[in-house]
Design a binder for these strands. Structure first.
Lengths: 127, 127
DNA sequence: AAACCTAGTATACAAAAAGATACCTATATG
DNA sequence: CATATAGGTATCTTTTTGTATACTAGGTTT
């Protein structure tokens, strides 16, 4: 990952990647999840991608990784306190994003999908 | 560009790409800029990339493209009214991004560059 | 008439991100 | 003693992004 050039690019750095938003969504929703639970929740993600995204989020101290030293292994992921502070930004992005989708629909018609993975990130990050 | 899966991904869709943030920064700062002025402001960008980013921003109705039918050609770019509505989100991202950088510095030391292209997007989008 | 200007497009190529698949660890279970 | 288990890594291929370079249009300047 490169150093950010402007402050809001830091946020982008955290969020970009095909799977980061979904992963965050599930962790914000469920609080604590095991690696395998995340895999089940996001069926199309490969282990490699899931690991990668989680490690990047961990680097940014958005996600905490708790290892249980047992066999078979058990690892739990959760949003850190610092990570929870992101919810305001996510909320702002979500709100404007919604109105932007409406705007796009006005401009181009209803072709765009507005469906989300269960579609309730807004509710989730508020709580 | 794919359809977004969650609302805040719409915002990401607008912002991702190596050059989108810089382009937006300059347009928010300068109000109206010609293609060539943008090129000068962002020396490393190629015409192809600049065109591409601008077209994507135009599609999202963030940037307006005004063509003067003269030769040699003249085309001016500016932020649309709809685009200006994004400034709140950018501001939120910027603010949290700044505090996040501080947090990262506390965690990992001062290795990370906090420099931005002139570093004043926050001032610019407030105005 | 040749060269120059601006705002591009076209084509080929390199680099980065993502995907597919196989493999590893060490214990518990059948 | 073979197999399953959970959470990964390693390696290779494909796809997506971004870069480099050349070319175009058509009026203006030299």
């Amino acid at each position: 990952m490169e150093a950010p050039h402007c402050k809001f690019e830091t946020v982008l750095e955290i969020l970009v990647g095909k799977w980061k938003p979904v992963v965050l969504f599930h962790l914000f929703s469920n609080g604590t999840m095991r690696f395998s639970e995340l895999q089940k929740a996001i069926p199309d993600i490969t282990k490699k991608m899931l690991t990668q995204q989680l490690r990047e989020l961990e680097y940014h101290d958005i996600v905490h990784r708790k290892i249980y030293h047992q066999i078979p292994p058990k690892v739990e992921y959760s949003i850190t306190e610092h990570g929870k502070g992101m919810s305001t930004v996510l909320q702002a992005m979500n709100d404007w994003g919604m109105s932007h989708l409406t705007h796009l629909n006005e401009l181009y018609g209803e072709e765009r999908s507005v469906e989300s993975f269960e579609g309730r990130l807004d509710e989730v990050i508020k709580g």
